[in-house]
Design a protein around this nucleic acid. Sequence first.
DNA 1: TTTACTTTTGCATAAATATGTAAATTTTAT
DNA 2: ATAAAATTTACATATTTATGCAAAAGTAAA
Lengths: 158, 158
Amino acid sequence: MNKRTQRFSVIRSIIESEPISSQDELIIKLKEQGYEITQGTLSRDLKFMHVAKVPHREKGYIYVIPDQMAAHQADTHISSLITDNITNISFSGNIGIVHTKAGYANAVAVLLENKRYPEIAGTIAGDDTIFFVLHEGQSRKRIVRELSKLCPNIVIPQ
Amino acid sequence: MNKRTQRFSVIRSIIESEPISSQDELIIKLKEQGYEITQGTLSRDLKFMHVAKVPHREKGYIYVIPDQMAAHQADTHISSLITDNITNISFSGNIGIVHTKAGYANAVAVLLENKRYPEIAGTIAGDDTIFFVLHEGQSRKRIVRELSKLCPNIVIPQ
DNA sequence: TTTACTTTTGCATAAATATGTAAATTTTAT
DNA sequence: ATAAAATTTACATATTTATGCAAAAGTAAA
């Protein structure tokens, strides 16, 4: 596997694990992993990989790997099989909202319930969304830290 | 249907019927159909419509409408069939509660999610009830107005 | 209608992305 | 290993896209 091909797989793993909204942002992440390239090269890489740029609720725009490719890669890693399907976590008041890929909310909710976090008063899952309610007066701080551990690639506010 | 909304549907039909590889190209096509706008406006239109730019074998890059968006567009004209099944809307704190006829909660929730109201952090549906959570600090005012439009016959508090 | 308010737009410009070209690197054949 | 061919890269720059801001257009309330 040559350097360029290696880099492709790193690029893929980065944009699959966190929302990346510009090539410059991705260049920085690549540098952290030991891959130093210029923006022009990255542009050509993304073109070669058929990576699309899509408007995104929070981040403005993000890069995504089109479906067929994603599906192909989807079941390559077996660990963290469940939390990988979490796409976003946010809070509003004492409610936490977990977004997952379609159909995964239930599996993720079961996982959360099994963790028995003391702050969580209850959870409820739809198809791709989970609400969990915090006990009154509980701070988010600890639970945010715990959830961060669970999915290191998701940015949880505060 | 206002001017902007009309334009959206023209944009959609253009990029669905032929490969468009830049906004300037699309501006020309729009002009041919009687819609004259600047590049900045088009950029915002495409963002709002969640149109993605994807590398393409022959044309370099083309604009595409993601699936979900297509689905959204598809059911706008049957949306009143769905909202007719809402029986009540109320609020408690930053949670909105929508009651529907039995079995309709899911269909209504999907509709709500497709609307992408910026105030709504997430929704979750049971059989005849939907909870939706507002983002922190967001006022109910605008969302109440929007929901009122959606179902003119329901009285929403405040 | 008039007023207050919200949304949409154009303009100008900033930010981001794509690409021609020559140099560097890698691959292939001898 | 060396030369020739092919691929990949950086650099510089052209092209394309996004966005702050003020003006214009559109809506709702009185």
